[in-house]
Write a protein that binds this DNA or RNA. Structure first.
Length: 355
DNA sequence: AAGACGGGGGA
DNA sequence: TCCCCAGTCTT
């Protein structure tokens, strides 16, 4: 089947089934002349890196309310951006988001570049995001390849080479399929197809506009694609966290993590290093200061990208004014602690200590 | 080329 | 409970 025919049948499907998303211009509104806002497309695409639509929606709405334009985001304090991003994960994205906004506001007069090559130079914008912005926001012919596209096209074209070696073939297939007219809608259509029909498990082939042309389906291999190198298992690391609570105000002691690395620049409860070997009998040696630390029952479990973490939680109720000032730490009162730049693991630790 | 880098949803 | 998913940057 010709690429032009495949593209047209998918665009017809998209006109009827496009998901309504806060950053998306619907096919109907596009016909009425509405154009995408590059700032909203960029913001949504960065949030969507490694992250599902469901997880992104509320964060996107919040960011747009507080910072409606890239100039607003450039004028923001980085700390406020980190706080707003807290819980979404991959925090280097938030740091690069702010850097990128600064560059666009300062060097590009508040306008995003309109081509892949220039977009690729921006921090936090890689091959996927550059192509997505170029095609969705600027109607450029660009081959957008994300996880959905890899799955849909490896099935459609029966690409059995495992990822990531198959990436160039998939990119070439996407480029060949992408039409001159409505390239941005086509890219969004393939990604919608992957998210709703051509799912990783039990794809709904009967509902797929590409059913008749799908080599993966005809061969019976669709559900096994794309092939991937086997993943290695995650080690478990152990550590302790110390939650100090002020008797008078209920404030808890927090501090800032180093700017780079795991949870870089985010806020944390004071604690030990996280290591694969951990001696619980010496945990208290690493408390931020001597106090009547009491171990909570149970432990906080959390899984990061490349290791599992088991955290012992200690709590001490004390009088904050009697504690010597802690470097890079502060007492956070109960009414603002939820707004701190606390990643999920630290929210779990606080919940375990305070419940 | 391989590892670092979160969190959420589904079986 | 485990298992799966998914871009960019660094080394």
């Amino acid at each position: 089947m010709s690429s032009a025919f495949l593209a047209q049948s998918l665009l017809d499907w998209y006109d009827r089934h496009a998901r309504q998303l806060p950053w998306r211009v619907s096919p109907e509104n596009r016909k009425l002349g509405e154009v995408a806002d590059p700032y909203r497309i960029w913001l949504s695409e960065v949030m969507l890196q490694q992250t599902t639509v469901a997880a992104v929606k509320d964060y996107f709405e919040k960011f747009i309310q507080v910072w409606p334009t890239v100039d607003d985001l450039a004028a923001a304090a980085e700390e406020d951006v980190m706080k707003a991003w807290a819980g979404l994960g991959y925090y280097s994205r938030a740091r690069n988001l702010k850097k990128c906004a600064d560059i666009v506001a300062r060097d590009h007069d508040g306008h995003f570049p309109d081509n892949e090559e220039a977009l690729l130079k921006l921090p936090g914008v890689g091959p996927y995001t550059a192509a997505a912005i170029a095609t969705i926001a600027f109607d450029r012919h660009a081959a957008v390849v994300d996880g959905n596209v890899e799955r849909v096209l490896s099935r459609l074209k029966l690409i059995e080479t495992p990822l990531p070696e198959a990436k160039p073939a998939i990119k070439a297939a996407m480029s060949d399929l992408t039409p001159e007219q409505r390239p941005g809608d086509f890219a969004q259509a393939v990604m919608d197809l992957g998210a709703t029909i051509c799912t990783p498990k039990r794809p709904a082939c009967a509902l797929c506009p590409w059913m008749e042309s799908c080599e993966g389906r005809h061969s019976g291999l669709a559900e096994t694609l794309p092939r991937k190198a086997p993943k290695k298992q995650k080690p478990t690391r152990y550590g302790a966290a110390f939650v100090a609570v002020d008797n008078d105000t209920g404030a808890v002691l927090l501090r800032r993590r180093p700017p780079k690395g795991l949870l870089g620049g985010m806020t944390e409860v004071p604690g030990t290093e996280w290591a694969e070997t951990f001696d619980p009998s010496h945990a208290l040696d690493h408390a931020p200061f001597p106090a009547n630390w009491r171990k909570r029952t149970g432990e906080v479990k959390h899984t990061f990208t490349h290791f599992h973490l088991k955290l012992s939680i200690y709590r001490s109720d004390l009088t904050a004014t009697l504690i010597p000032d802690q470097a890079d730490a502060w007492w956070s009162p109960p009414d603002v602690v939820e707004d701190e730049a606390l990643p999920t693991v630290m929210r779990k630790a606080l919940a375990a200590a305070l419940d």
